[in-house]
């Protein structure tokens, strides 16, 4: 029972991470496409300004919780995915630095350089997270000792790449939606146009991804046993449709919330299909790490549950406060403040 609760919490933490860091990663990936001049590019940086760091902590929490509640899953997941994980971490380092350093030297060359770094270092995590999670859905070649029999290229299979593209596009749309909230004038209109371009692409990718999931993975097995679970992909679809409906009505925050719901339910769709598997072995079913054989002791799970139940709502509460405090669009006037990025 404790293991099941923790599995759900584990999925929830990743989902929150995708929702929150998703928009700033997506926004950074759109930098060269939406930011047509210096002011607009700086508005894009500052649209993520007070949020990106706090958002990234959800990754640390998701990692930390995996470590605490499922040490075996943590150990196998990160050692098997050694290369992609380190590439992800280096990208995140460069992303953070590009935020902090870009505006520190008054030179167009310097700024252009960091814009390039910013674009690439946001793009890579979007794709890699998709590739990694698609491969986890499908299963990876690990043996009973947790040794990975493959290499980086083996992760770049059709399904893995489909996951990468799928994640990239939904992060980008999520980021573009965020920019519609945080900007005004031509930049906002361009962001809206981008959402309208990406929306049908994403719908198509969702369908393709679901079909490929049926072909390449075993995720639907759980769905056939408990058909009630089909509500999850349907809710994801509803979220996506909601984005369009809310935009038609000109309601930007609700549109972003629908996009967030879409991301949450896509994550839950995958997790529900994997359950109780966490690291599914594609070569030896007995070698799979599950929520049951990979969990910590009941005492640790209980203590950590207490910590999570107290702390996560507190964190969410003050983060919501911060989002409200900085909800106004970034304007050119804000950029003249000496604290702006």
């Amino acid at each position: 029972m404790l293991e099941t609760i923790w599995f759900i919490l584990w999925a929830l933490l990743w989902a929150v991470y995708f929702v929150l860091d998703g928009f700033d990663l997506g926004l950074g990936s759109l930098l060269p496409f939406l930011g047509k001049n210096e002011t607009e590019r700086r508005i894009m940086y500052n649209a993520a300004g007070p949020f990106w760091d706090g958002n990234e902590v959800w990754l640390i929490s998701a990692g930390g919780v995996t470590f605490a509640a499922f040490p075996k899953a943590y150990a196998v997941m990160f050692s098997a995915l050694y290369a992609p994980l380190l590439i992800l971490l280096f990208a995140l380092i460069f992303r953070a630095v590009s935020f902090e350093f870009r505006n520190k030297v008054d030179s167009p060359v310097w700024c252009t350089f960091w814009d390039g770094v910013h674009f690439v270092s946001n793009l890579i995590p979007c794709i890699l997270l998709g590739v990694a999670f698609a491969n986890l859905f499908m299963g990876i070649p690990i043996d009973a000792q947790g040794v990975y029999h493959g290499n980086l290229l083996k992760l770049l299979n059709i399904y893995g790449l489909a996951g990468g593209v799928f994640f990239l596009v939904f992060f980008m749309m999520h980021g573009a939606l965020w920019l519609t909230i945080k900007s005004e004038g031509p930049l906002q209109i361009r962001a809206l146009t981008m959402v309208n371009i990406l929306w049908p692409v994403l719908l198509g990718l969702l369908i393709i991804f679901l079909v490929l999931t049926a072909v390449y993975t075993n995720l639907f097995a759980n769905y056939l046993v408990s058909p009630a679970l089909f509500i999850l992909p349907l809710l994801a679809l509803a979220g996506l449709v909601g984005v369009k409906v809310m935009l038609r009505r000109g309601q930007l925050w609700p549109a972003w919330a629908c996009s967030a719901a879409f991301i949450v339910f896509v994550t839950f769709f995958g997790a529900a299909g994997m359950f109780p598997g966490m690291i599914i072995s594609s070569i030896d079913p007995a070698a799979s790490v599950t929520a049951f054989n990979g969990a910590s002791s009941p005492l640790t799970l209980k203590i950590m549950l207490g910590v999570a139940l107290v702390m996560v709502p507190i964190v969410l509460a003050y983060q919501v406060w911060v989002y409200r405090l900085f909800s106004a669009p970034v304007t050119a006037a804000d950029l003249s403040d000496d604290h702006a990025y």
Partner: peptide, 8 residues
């Protein structure tokens, strides 16, 4: 792992 998770 618990200590690291609590830290975060």
């Amino acid at each position: 792992g618990s200590l690291l998770a609590i830290e975060a």
